[in-house]
């Protein structure tokens, strides 16, 4: 099992809160609203490239959650359902406002200016560089990466959120990895060594 810490799976808590929302419980709604706010806002920001628009769309998403909570059948996780609404509303809002995250090529110079590994400045610059590398991806590939590594969704959940076959998600993930590997060739080299050292002799 990997040591990466994906966002906690709060499925049962979310379901309890949503059941409260379905019967008009404002306190449950507020708790759900606050719990989803940071990650959905960030996801919407990556889709719309506007913090203001992300916040506006988030309120629209949660308005749908308030209205449709009683329709939730429980066939998927609450987070998958909410992210599906967020994805559709975010795409629509971005198209309407003509706002998408710009795809910019990364320059060799940017990679070359990274500081010494291990320093705080290096970590900050590396994070910034990874953000730029993500921005080079086509939107659909970037969305799959965000949903998998920021939101911690499975392949099947992502297929449900973006409303496409599982194999399409796998293909997008494959191409996204290939592109990111090309611009971040040394990322994770230290972790790889650690994995090898852990192997039984």
């Amino acid at each position: 099992m990997t040591d990466s810490s994906v966002p906690a799976d709060d499925s049962s808590r979310d379901l309890t809160l949503l059941q409260g929302v379905a019967v008009g419980d404002r306190a449950a709604f507020e708790e759900l609203f606050v719990a989803y706010h940071p990650r959905v806002i960030r996801f919407l920001y990556r889709l719309t490239n506007s913090a203001e628009l992300a916040e506006e769309v988030y309120n629209d998403v949660m308005f749908v959650v308030w209205q449709k909570a009683s329709d939730f059948q429980g066939r998927s996780k609450v987070s998958t359902w909410v992210m599906g609404i967020a994805y559709r509303k975010g795409l629509k809002a971005a198209a309407k406002a003509h706002r998408r995250l710009d795809r910019r090529p990364l320059s060799e110079l940017e990679l070359a200016t990274l500081r010494e590994p291990g320093s705080i400045a290096y970590q900050r610059e590396l994070r910034d560089y990874v953000g730029k590398a993500l921005a080079t991806l086509p939107e659909r590939q970037r969305t799959v990466i965000e949903l998998a590594y920021f939101m911690g969704h499975s392949c099947a959940e992502i297929a449900e959120i973006v409303d496409c076959p599982v194999n399409t998600v796998k293909t997008r993930m494959f191409h996204a990895r290939k592109r990111l590997r090309a611009v971040l060739p040394h990322l994770g080299a230290g972790r790889s060594r650690a994995h090898r050292e852990e192997r039984p002799l």
Binding site: T2, D3, S4, S5, V6, P7, E30, F33, V34, H37, P38, I41, R42, Y45, A51, A54, E55, Y58, N59, L126, R127, V130, G131, L134, I145, E146, A148, Y149, F150, R177, L180, R181, L184, L187, G188, A189, G190, R191, S192, R193, A194, H195, R196
Partner: peptide, 28 residues
């Protein structure tokens, strides 16, 4: 093994990227 190291570091960097400092209370 190398690819796993790459993906784990990628996930780590993505999750640690800057949070959006927006107030949920006002939105709510």
């Amino acid at each position: 093994s190398h690819e796993l190291g790459f993906l784990e570091e990628l996930g780590s960097q993505i999750r640690e990227s800057e949070a959006m400092l927006l107030s949920p209370e006002r939105s709510f």
